[in-house]
Amino acid sequence: MSHDHDHPDFLGHHWENPKQQFEAGKLGMWLFLTTEVLLFGGLFVAYTVWRSNYPELFKYGSQFLDTNWGATNTAVLLISSMTMAMAVTYAARGKMKAVVICLVLTLFGAAGFMAIKYVEYSHKFHEGFYPGLAFYDEPHASELWLPLDETATAAKAHAHQMDMDESAMLHAEALVRAELPEAPADAQNWNKSISGPGPAGLTTNLEQEELAEFTTFLPEFVTGDIEDAGEELAFAEHHEPGEEPHLSHPLQDPTRPTNAQKFFTIYFMMTGLHGIHVVIGGIVILWLLWRTLRGDFNREYYTPIDLGGLYWHVVDLIWIFLFPMFYLI
């Protein structure tokens, strides 16, 4: 392996000239990107099959996705794609300081995207939208529906006036029960169905009374959970009259179609696999940044930046498909 002026350091020993190496790298990257698209292709087919077989799941599930966050993320990725393209252009012109700035901006894009993903995912988990059969696991106390039902509150207030007359209490309870939706019968693996109308908490000013209400309405395994969870209970008390009620837990939602977990499964699988690719892309950009700062690249040789850019654009492109598929249609 001789390193004369015809064979610069960056050129592998088996290449004739930089152009050949560059073209090979580019072809290799395109092939790799083809396999990436095909990898996602399997999930796209799964999405298509499910969507055509169970359109109601997608109608139901997509309403819980926050289009604003999705659109923000789309914008973040598009801008980062632009800064990546700028990095490649500056590299071709040999302006390495500009390349560094552009790569840093792209890195911010990747980090921002993942941060928003974190917010979205944790919100979904908080509301009880898990992929797979975890969807049907016992809800955590903090995820339960704590409706602020004014009828019920009024009835209770009335009952209070009546000095906790037992029949009035029962009346209040009946009113509340009438307001609550039926527990769905079709939840698979949901053997321990929440008895009666489903878990409910009532917002009052009196903690004791609220606890009593819980014990009235909830089966023991849930109240036990709540009594142990002081903070979650405090969460319940945040609801003031007139405030928007907390979203219902999906398991209590009467409009929830059978097998609703499928929507969230394919949502988490596709966006999750995409998220993994964003993380990998971020690592690649970090590596490119390090090599740029080390001075490995110049206008003659910036193949890794070019190829990294290609990869980042495809990651972006896949999101461009995912966003409308889940959030918009």
Binding site: G42, G132, N259
Partner: peptide, 17 residues
């Protein structure tokens, strides 16, 4: 690859595909 990933997830988490 993705088929086997779906199969593994199906077995582990029950996704219903």
């Amino acid at each position: 690859g993705i088929t086997l990933a779906l199969l593994a997830v199906e077995r582990a988490f029950g996704i219903g595909i």
